[in-house]
Nucleic acid binder design. Structure first.
Length: 270
DNA sequence: ATGGTGGTCCTACCA
């Protein structure tokens, strides 16, 4: 079985429902993981998204901020929604594909805290919370009972780990999202389950690659001061079966865009 | 060096 999975920080699913519809029409994902839906479950545009063919939809939402949702055309069940940093934030949703030929793939859709402006956990509680979140989610995946052979973790990680994941490694070393301490914490999460980054297997680390461009620039493509904040990782056994990856950067030019663009992986389940 | 934009939901807070 082959399927296409995508992650997209949508920055309000209600406001940008037309963009989700356009993305689905143009890119036909079988599984779509959204972050920053910014609504409660009861306000989620369920019927409109079911009409796009997603018969299986799970939502972990809250009013106004954060929130994640996982939509699937393939049979899928909800597993859990953890609060890794203690705060009452809707930032995680685990589901599992249940179709017999889907390999029982477990999908962790995450929205890691942004971390505020000052990269010092002593001065900035938001930065501390980000590091705590990364530490706790790593601890969770380090426990064998929380792992399985075929897993995907994807979402807005709010960390650009590699030098070519940002427009200027040197200038962003002290900017939240690319500081060494965040990169170390993200590496802790990666190592906890032996996660592989198949996006960088397909697009080599020597190439610049971004998934986010700030709203605060006149011409995002001309200035191109982007960062790769959105990621799709798989367990080692799944990584060789990711046969294509796409960053749908055209979506950054759609009307009233999100500041993030979708990242897509095509996976053939062995 | 600074301020630049955008979403939620009514006043700041968050990104």
């Amino acid at each position: 079985m082959q399927f296409r999975i995508a992650t997209w920080n949508i920055n309000s699913v209600r406001l940008r429902l037309p963009l989700v519809e356009r993305f689905v029409a143009e890119f036909a994902p079988d599984v779509l993981c959204l972050q920053e839906i910014k609504c409660r479950e009861e306000d989620f545009p369920l019927a409109a998204l079911q009409q796009l063919g997603f018969s299986f939809i799970e939502v972990n939402g809250q009013a106004g901020y954060h929130g994640v949702a996982t939509l699937s055309r393939i049979p899928m069940t909800r597993m859990s929604s953890k609060r890794f940093c203690g705060a009452d934030h809707a930032r995680h949703l685990a589901t599992a594909l249940t179709a017999p030929d889907s390999g029982g793939v477990v999908i962790h859709n995450v929205y890691i805290p942004s971390g505020g402006d000052i990269p010092d956990p002593g001065l900035n509680p938001k930065f501390e919370q980000k590091l705590v979140y990364l530490g706790r989610i790593a601890e969770w995946f380090a426990r064998p009972e929380n792992r399985s052979e075929r897993m995907i973790i994807l979402g807005d990680f709010n960390v650009a780990p590699l030098e070519n994941d940002v427009w200027s490694h040197k200038q962003l070393l002290t900017v939240v999202s690319h500081t060494p301490v965040e990169v170390e914490h993200l590496e802790g999460l990666r190592a906890a389950a032996g996660w592989v980054d198949p996006v960088r297997l397909h697009i080599p680390p020597t190439e610049k690659l971004y998934t986010w461009w700030s709203y605060r620039s006149k011409d995002w493509r001309a200035s191109n001061r982007g960062r790769r904040l959105d990621h799709i990782w798989t367990t080692p056994s799944l990584a060789p079966h990711v046969h294509r990856v796409t960053v749908a950067d055209a979506a950054r030019d759609w009307p009233q865009p999100s500041d993030h663009v979708p990242v897509i992986a095509d996976i053939a389940i062995p």
